[in-house]
Design a protein around this nucleic acid. Sequence first.
DNA 1: CGTTCGGTTGAGCTTTGTCAAACCGCGTGG
DNA 2: CCACGCGGTTTGACAAAGCTCAACCGAACG
Lengths: 248, 248
Amino acid sequence: MSSRSDSCIVCHFSHYATLSDSEVDLLCSLERNEKTVSPQSMIRASGEKTANFYTLKSGWVVAEQHLENGQRQVIDVFVPGQVLGLREIAYHTGLCNFTSLTEAVICPFPKRSIVELFEKSARLTDLFFLILAREQATLVERIVNLGRRSAIEKVAHFLLEMHERLSIANDELGNTYRLPMTQRCIGDTLGLSSVHVSRSFARLTMDGLLQRAGNEITLLDLERLRDIAGFDATYLGIDQSWLRGPKV
Amino acid sequence: MSSRSDSCIVCHFSHYATLSDSEVDLLCSLERNEKTVSPQSMIRASGEKTANFYTLKSGWVVAEQHLENGQRQVIDVFVPGQVLGLREIAYHTGLCNFTSLTEAVICPFPKRSIVELFEKSARLTDLFFLILAREQATLVERIVNLGRRSAIEKVAHFLLEMHERLSIANDELGNTYRLPMTQRCIGDTLGLSSVHVSRSFARLTMDGLLQRAGNEITLLDLERLRDIAGFDATYLGIDQSWLRGPKV
DNA sequence: CGTTCGGTTGAGCTTTGTCAAACCGCGTGG
DNA sequence: CCACGCGGTTTGACAAAGCTCAACCGAACG
């Protein structure tokens, strides 16, 4: 059971707009059910009916797609506070798998609930629209990453992106964070082989840009990393000026 | 000036849901201003204020991004009926350039108008949400294409996607269509060099899968092409079942 | 008729992938 | 406590895919 104080989604949404009490209540109502899943478990398979969305309370989850030839592409990486499946609101069946990387707590809620929420609050409708748009901007950046950057640049860019995204949710994050992904998984995100990811990490480490200890990543020289990756964080920002008021 | 009969956006939107008269009027009101641009002109530059959206009445447009190193990545290709800039609704400034490939007719309308439209019709709000979600699915498919497919597969997939998208708008499209993109541009879409695009085309042509004459592309063997590309059109479909009624 | 632009072709090179072996940390069970 | 096995990482040797450069061709256009 979720109470207002521990709602991850409210915390996440509050980053984009100040929420009224009733808006907070509406959002919290999405987290009535709670489920813990073990690492590497399939939360929802591609092709399954998209009856539910899921808020992600803790843990990491990826959206991935398997190809005919046995390869895999990771579409998106989710961290706590995000909503899984928003993208597929317009589809009967899922277009990709949601798989947990770590143990994770998710709160499934039916599609219907979001429509009801839309009916009750124009402001939250806008906010969902806005968050969908922001996710889309992340995808766009991933496209650029995949299409036109070298392996080193890809890895650097990815590490910076995750750092930035975690920083948004956690104001006091330093330059170190835990990245619970295998190099195979990172490769599947960046369109690289795991071997080449390893080599790229080695290179960045040797050049003094990076430090690693288990899953802990420390970015030693943000400036130079950004330079290498051509990283510009504006796509992770957001403009709430067009949000409809007044609050519900 | 736009009349109801020649509105491309209405025609496009009607593919996803039956529209009431007042909904049609609302959509048409977005196309009050009309502007013709020559090929290769920049409609809106990255970094510019996103004051306007644009409906695309005729011609082809790409969204592209330029990198530090002089490279270019094409994010998305737009055909008539689509709305340019929807993706950036949540951003003050544009994240990519919109550039026309051909002569094109666009209808700029202010961001405000869309908010007003949202206020007047919950159904159209949903429809915009839905179309945004579909665009996102296209991006997801591009990610898979960029990350995990070989050059030949990329090209085949791209040609099938464009064919499919054009077929949706034009019921009586055969297996031939005009693709007004240079191979350089296709390469920038697929993360390939123009030279390699040329070689891939040559290969597909030699294998009897494809025929070319100028910009005209004929897909000779859809079956086999789909097989090569791992193409599955479901991501281009859409589920309007959750659309709110009744119509305005 | 020359110029320009896009497409094609070949040669050589760079990046990245593949395969295989070794390695490392960790948890398990003897 | 130690041996073992397992999953993930690292390393090296080699192969393949794709890139760059440069030359050339043909069509469109002034």
